[in-house]
């Protein structure tokens, strides 16, 4: 190796981490930035369809749909609060407590998915499919299932990740940074739901 290469190698080895954060945390932020764009495209597409349709339906009754959605919102926001507590405990190196908060957040995620699937089943029973809407504007079904489906997939991935990291953190295989990274993901999933609720449910509520 010539001396010039050695200098380059040394610089690479001792290069400061970008934005003074660990690379795996930066990677999660980059994933979140790309996911922001993915969801933005879907939200704008949904808005385009809604605006350009003369018979866009407003099928959601206050009870049970809107009440159920408010319950789902409370579940997800509470899960986010639990993850904030998990990060807090992990930073204090309280492994048991940190893992417990993470586990509780994952359980709330499971509850969210179960209630959301019940909501889907009810809509499917009423005749809503990807290609047909009983209330008019057939594209409503595909737009609704695409947006809510992608969000539920994110929740499912989060539940699995939180479960694995909670067990790993309790057993000492994961560190506080892993808890913080998956907290970022979980909070982002919460933000997507925050935008989804007024756009897909509240603006389509039967007033």
């Amino acid at each position: 190796m010539n001396p010039q290469d050695a200098v380059v190698d040394a610089r690479t080895e001792h290069e400061m981490s970008p934005f003074a954060m660990p690379s795996k945390k930066l990677l999660m932020w980059l994933f979140i930035a790309s996911d922001i764009v993915t969801f933005a495209v879907l939200f704008y597409g949904y808005g385009y369809l809604r605006n350009s349709s003369s018979n866009w339906p407003t099928p959601f009754q206050f009870s049970p749909t809107i009440l159920r959605v408010m319950g789902l919102t409370a579940i997800l926001v509470t899960g986010g609060f639990f993850m904030t507590n998990a990060v807090h405990e992990a930073n204090l190196n309280n492994r048991r407590s940190g893992a417990r908060w993470m586990g509780l957040a994952a359980l709330l995620g499971v509850l969210f998915i179960a209630i959301h699937m019940q909501e889907w089943r009810q809509l499917i029973n009423e005749g809503l499919t990807l290609s047909h809407s009983p209330w008019g504007a057939n594209q409503f079904g595909s737009a609704f299932f695409l947006l809510t489906g992608l969000h539920v997939l994110h929740v499912l991935a989060g539940v699995l990740a939180l479960g694995i990291v909670a067990i790993g953190y309790r057993r000492g295989r994961c560190d506080a940074m892993d808890v913080e990274i998956w907290s970022l993901y979980w909070q982002f999933v919460e933000v997507v739901w925050i935008i989804l609720v007024p756009m897909v449910y509240l603006l389509n509520a039967k007033v």
Binding site: I66, V77, F81, T84, N85, H88, P198, L203
Partner: peptide
């Protein structure tokens, strides 16, 4: 930090209730 997290959580819940009022 714990108090700030709890405050954010409560503000979120209150703003969702407000959003529901606006929706109707």
């Amino acid at each position: 930090r714990g108090k700030a997290a709890l405050s954010v959580y409560l503000v979120m819940l209150v703003s969702f209730a407000l959003q529901l009022c606006v929706a109707y």
